[in-house]
Amino acid sequence: MSGTADIGCACGRTRLEVLGAPILVSECLCNSCRAAAGRLATLPGARNILTSYGATSCAEYRKDRVRILSGAEHLSEFRLAADAGTRRVVATCCNTPVFLELKGAHWLSIYLHLWPHEARPKAELRTMVGALPDASNLPDDIPNLKSHTVSFYAKLLGAWIAMGFRNPKIDVVGKIEA
């Protein structure tokens, strides 16, 4: 994937532009991602972002390659707990989860459902499979990794080096409870 992609929420009021290829495209099965997706799916008009086997699918992008084109006023953060270091950002115009951001991270994990189906990046791996009580129902189309690997972290470190060790701030004004 090269060039730019214009992606957005379900109603189209919140739009993002992503530049170039993602650092990585993954499906996460950690307890936090599954719990947050379940709670966000209970918001009015929201849809479930989990795959049929309970994963959240994301493209990890350098923050300096993501631009909010419209709808910034609709972006609100959701945290599983008040002191959680991870925030999920939701477009409240239609309660569409947009991205996940870890405290101190130089990348955003942008949810794949924002892309039109035909243009959606393909997942390269599943991670945190070890968090599942039973992983036997997972497809074997891509690697199913028990946890994050050295290669996973190396890709993130390489992106941070390419960014000159910068960490752009993504401001979000609202907060939501789910």
Rank of each mutant, 00 (worst) to 15 (best):
F99M: 09
D6T: 07
N31C: 03
A105N: 05
N31E: 12
L132T: 13
A21H: 04
P121N: 09
P116W: 10
F78R: 01
T96D: 00
W160H: 14
P22L: 11
T14R: 00
C30W: 03
E118T: 12
G174K: 11
V66E: 01
G38W: 01
N31R: 03
P139V: 05
A59V: 12
E60D: 12
G8D: 00
L100F: 03
N31G: 08
C33F: 02
T92E: 02
S57A: 15
I23E: 07
T42P: 02
E27T: 09
L145V: 03
Y111N: 04
E77L: 13
T149S: 14
P44D: 15
A72V: 09
E77Y: 08
G8N: 00
R166F: 04
R34L: 05
L138N: 06
P97T: 10
A46D: 07
G8V: 00
A91F: 03
D141M: 04
L24R: 11
D64W: 03
L114F: 05
N167D: 10
H117S: 06
V150E: 14
A21N: 08
T51V: 07
F99T: 09
P143T: 13
L75W: 05
Y153A: 13
W115F: 14
A119K: 08
M128Q: 12
I23Y: 04
